[in-house]
Amino acid sequence: MSDGAALLRLAGIHTHIGRYHILHGVDLAVRRGRLTMLLGRNGAGKTTTLRTIMGLWRRSAGEIDFDGRPIGDLETPDIARLGIAYVPETMGIFAQLTVRENLLLATGPQGFDEAQLEAVLALFPALREKWHNAAGSLSGGQKQMLAISRAIIEPRRLLIVDEPTKGLAPAVIQLLIDAFLRLKQSATTILLVEQNFHVARSVGDDVAVMDDGRIVHTGAMADLAADETLQRHLLGLSLASHQ
C-alpha cells in the first residue's frame, strides 16, 4: 500500500483502557477515495481503534496522521472539525431529539443545505416520514439510517462507521449496502468496521484484519473474499457462517 495515498495513517498505536492494554501496535492506512474494511473477531480491538482515532480513548504510544498532519494529541471536537464523521457502534442517536434536530446538529451554523438534505433523504426515505418524531421512537434500522445520514449531511473528508448492520434485518442491511455503494461513487473515503462478511465483500475496496489488538492482514478485499482458507484462518468460523 503506498502511504502517499493514505488519508489516515496509524503507526504503532498502543491504547490502554484503564489498566488493560488493548491495542498492541496498530498499523493501518486508509487510502483516499476508497472504502477500507476493518474486520476481526469479537474483542479484536476494532471499536477501540476507531475510538482512538477520534480521540475518545488516548493512545499511549504511536502516531496518528490525518492528511499528513499528526492528530493524536488533538481533542475529539478538533479531530471531528478536520472533517471526520464518526458513527459509533451504539449509533449515538439523541433519543429525545427529533430526526430533524439530530441531523441539524451535524450541520454548520447556517443550517441545512437543501440539496444535500434532499440527497440524504433520497438515500433513506423512511427518515422523511419521521422528520418530526423523537429519534428514540425509530426502529433499529431507521436509527442506523439516521446515524449515517448525520455523518454525511455535510461533506466530510473521512467517514468512520462501526458495525452499522449489527442486529438489522436482511432488507435493511441491503439498503445500507446500497447506501455505501452510492457514497463510494462520490469518492468519499470510508473506514468501515463490520462483522458481516457479505457486507464487507459487497462494499470493501481494501481490507485490514485485526486480532488481539494488532493488524494481522492487509490487502484487497476482493482477494480475501476469494480465499476461503484465509478467511477461516483470519476470521474464524463465525464470520464464514455469515456468507
Binding site: 471536537p77 471531528a80 459509533p88
Partner: peptide, 11 residues
C-alpha cells in the same frame, strides 16, 4: 443525553 457524541460532532 450523550456528551461524547456531541464532542464527536465537533462541538
Amino acid at each position: 443525553e450523550n456528551l461524547e457524541m456531541v464532542e464527536a460532532l465537533g462541538y
